[in-house]
Simulated scan of single mutants.
Amino acid sequence: MIRPIHYTDAQQLLNIYNYYVINTDVTFDLEPTPLKVFQEKIHSISKDFPFIVYEENNEILGYAYAGKFRERPAYNHTLESTVYVKSSAHGKQIGSKLYAELIAQLKQTNCRVVLGVLTLPNDASVKLHEKFGFELVGHLKEVGFKFNTWLDVGIFELKLA
């Protein structure tokens, strides 16, 4: 089931996220995020924007949210989307289900544009975004450095209005 986040979900979500921090370059965080920091992030985002989880048999297998793209007021109608799926749950279309619901919720807000900011290459994430109509609008070369490798970032845009 897909449902809104509960504050008590924080540890399960953090476990999903920190796996990606430690083992992949899809996030540019270099050290695992502490629980208190993650709880503050959840509170900050969920009070203003959609933050949803995919739960199966009382286990959270993924989550998605949208948040501010940038702080300046002219960006108030542009949000950045994020989706993470538990590494052991890939291939179940959980990311697609979460994104479908997130986008549906965003269409009910004053959001005009949703951006996906992805480490490249990342075929699975690119395919997910393209499936929902996101288009590559920017390719930043070698802007991140993790695991002794320079990493590119793609900016994918979906216009809702």
Rank of each mutant, 00 (worst) to 15 (best):
M1L: 10
M1D: 06
I2W: 07
R3I: 05
R3S: 07
I5M: 03
T8S: 15
T8I: 12
D9Y: 11
A10H: 01
A10M: 01
Q12T: 05
L14I: 04
Y17I: 03
Y17F: 10
N18M: 01
Y20H: 08
Y20L: 07
I22A: 11
V26D: 05
V26G: 04
V26T: 12
V26Q: 08
F28R: 03
L30M: 13
P34F: 06
L35E: 10
K36S: 14
K36T: 14
V37S: 14
E40K: 15
I42S: 02
S44R: 15
S46D: 09
S46F: 08
K47V: 11
D48Y: 12
F49Y: 13
F49R: 07
P50Y: 00
P50S: 00
F51G: 01
I52Y: 03
E55I: 07
E55S: 05
N58I: 11
E59A: 14
E59V: 15
G62E: 02
G62V: 00
Y65F: 05
A66P: 06
K68E: 08
R70V: 00
E71D: 14
E71I: 08
E71G: 15
R72T: 09
R72E: 07
Y75F: 10
N76Q: 15
H77Y: 15
T78L: 01
L79W: 10
L79H: 07
S81W: 10
S81M: 11
S81H: 13
T82S: 12
T82C: 07
T82W: 01
V83N: 02
Y84T: 01
K86E: 15
K86G: 13
S88C: 12
A89L: 05
H90M: 13
K92G: 10
K92F: 03
G95W: 04
S96R: 10
S96D: 12
S96N: 09
K97T: 08
K97C: 04
L98I: 06
L98M: 07
A100S: 13
E101N: 11
E101G: 01
L102S: 06
I103G: 01
A104Y: 12
Q105M: 09
T109G: 06
C111Q: 02
C111H: 02
R112E: 15
V113Q: 13
V113F: 02
V113P: 13
L115P: 01
G116E: 02
L118F: 11
L118V: 07
L118G: 03
L118S: 06
T119H: 06
D123R: 15
K127P: 09
L128P: 04
L128T: 03
H129M: 00
F132K: 02
G133K: 05
G133H: 08
K141S: 11
E142L: 10
F145I: 09
K146M: 04
F147I: 07
F147W: 09
N148R: 13
T149R: 15
T149S: 15
L151E: 09
L151C: 07
V153E: 11
V153W: 05
F156T: 06
F156G: 09
L158K: 13
L158Q: 10
K159H: 14
